[in-house]
């Protein structure tokens, strides 16, 4: 029996090394895995809060209306009712935070209007669109259209609908 054990002895060290390695791994694992891991599922629960902490750039329509309700009323009554303020004016969360220090610039009308209203057969047919080069003859859109309520109520629009 003793002789038998002696002949097995050389295997004990490698076996010991493997088992010790496994033990060390389990200890490290217990120490290193983030505390919130597994809180809601197989991930770091704290990641949710981390992602929520990101600051916003767009304040949101409701925020704009808090102060600018006069413009908001005009817009809500017109053709641009579904267009939120920042869709044209850009991200203004900073402005909402400190209106005096962050004064927004007026958008460049020449680029802005075309993005939506330039004619493209891929656009839905109900959507008002024009070939801008022919439509305005180089005039700025705002010469005729009031951006917050762009519809021009004249006798002309009863015929062609161009003035929408």
């Amino acid at each position: 029996m003793r002789r038998f054990l002696q002949d097995w002895a050389h295997l004990l060290l490698p076996a010991g090394v493997l088992i010790a390695g496994l033990g060390v791994f389990l200890v490290i694992r217990a120490a290193v895995v983030p505390k919130s891991f597994g809180e809601y599922g197989h991930y770091r629960g704290a990641a949710l809060e981390m992602i929520r902490q990101k600051p916003v750039s767009y304040a949101g329509q409701d925020m704009c209306v808090m102060c600018h309700d006069d413009q908001a009323k005009v817009k809500a009554a017109g053709k641009h009712a579904t267009v939120h303020c920042e869709a044209c004016h850009g991200p203004l969360a900073k402005h909402a935070e400190d209106p005096a220090a962050n004064v927004p610039k007026l958008p460049d009308v020449a680029v802005l209007c075309k993005r939506c209203h330039e004619q493209d057969p891929a656009k839905p047919s109900w959507f008002p669109q024009v070939v801008t080069a022919e439509h305005s003859g180089g005039m700025k859109c705002t010469e005729c259209h009031q951006p917050h309520s762009p519809h021009i109520a004249t006798e002309a629009d009863a015929g062609s609908g161009r003035g929408k």
Partner: peptide, 9 residues
């Protein structure tokens, strides 16, 4: 942000 800025909904 995309919904906020979509002009047509």
């Amino acid at each position: 942000a995309c919904c906020e800025n979509c002009p047509t909904g």
